[in-house]
Measured scan of single mutants.
Amino acid sequence: NKFNKEMRNAYWEILHLPNLNEEQKNAFIQSLYDDPSQSANLLAEAKKLNDAQA
């Protein structure tokens, strides 16, 4: 299933973003579980936030 793979990839990438705190990571990961079809968008948002907090 495409979403499972996308979701897993997004999950791991978000988990390893160095500039997000636990609360931010948890919020993105919760959103992933709530709507796996948004994995790519959530990952993009997480990366933007990560870069902004660098």
Rank of each mutant, 00 (worst) to 15 (best):
P18S: 14
Q38P: 10
A54H: 09
L17Y: 05
E13T: 12
H16P: 03
L17V: 02
N9E: 13
D51K: 09
A27M: 12
L49K: 11
L42N: 09
A27N: 10
L15S: 04
A27L: 08
F3I: 15
A40T: 13
Y33Q: 02
N1F: 00
K48I: 10
A10S: 04
N21S: 14
N26T: 02
N50Q: 13
K47V: 06
R8S: 03
K48N: 10
Y11A: 08
L20Y: 00
N41G: 08
D35V: 08
L32D: 00
E45M: 11
N1Q: 04
N50M: 02
A54K: 05
I14K: 01
A27F: 11
Q53R: 10
E6Q: 06
M7Y: 03
P18Q: 07
N21M: 13
D35L: 09
Y33F: 13
E6H: 05
N19G: 05
A44E: 13
N4T: 04
A27E: 11
M7A: 14
A40Y: 15
S31T: 09
L43H: 03
N9V: 13
A44Y: 06
F28E: 00
N9L: 14
P36W: 04
E22W: 13
S39N: 03
N21Y: 08
N4H: 09
L17Q: 10
R8H: 09
A40S: 08
H16S: 06
N26H: 10
K47S: 07
K5A: 01
K48R: 09
Q24T: 08
A54P: 06
D35Q: 06
A44N: 09
Y33M: 05
L20R: 00
Q38D: 06
Y11F: 05
E45N: 06
P18V: 12
A40P: 12
L49Y: 09
A44D: 07
K5M: 00
L17I: 03
F3T: 15
S37W: 10
N9A: 15
S39H: 13
N1L: 01
W12G: 04
L43V: 06
E13D: 10
N26G: 09
S31V: 06
D35P: 02
I14Y: 01
D34H: 11
L20S: 00
E6K: 02
E22R: 15
P36N: 05
L49N: 08
N1S: 02
A52K: 05
L43K: 11
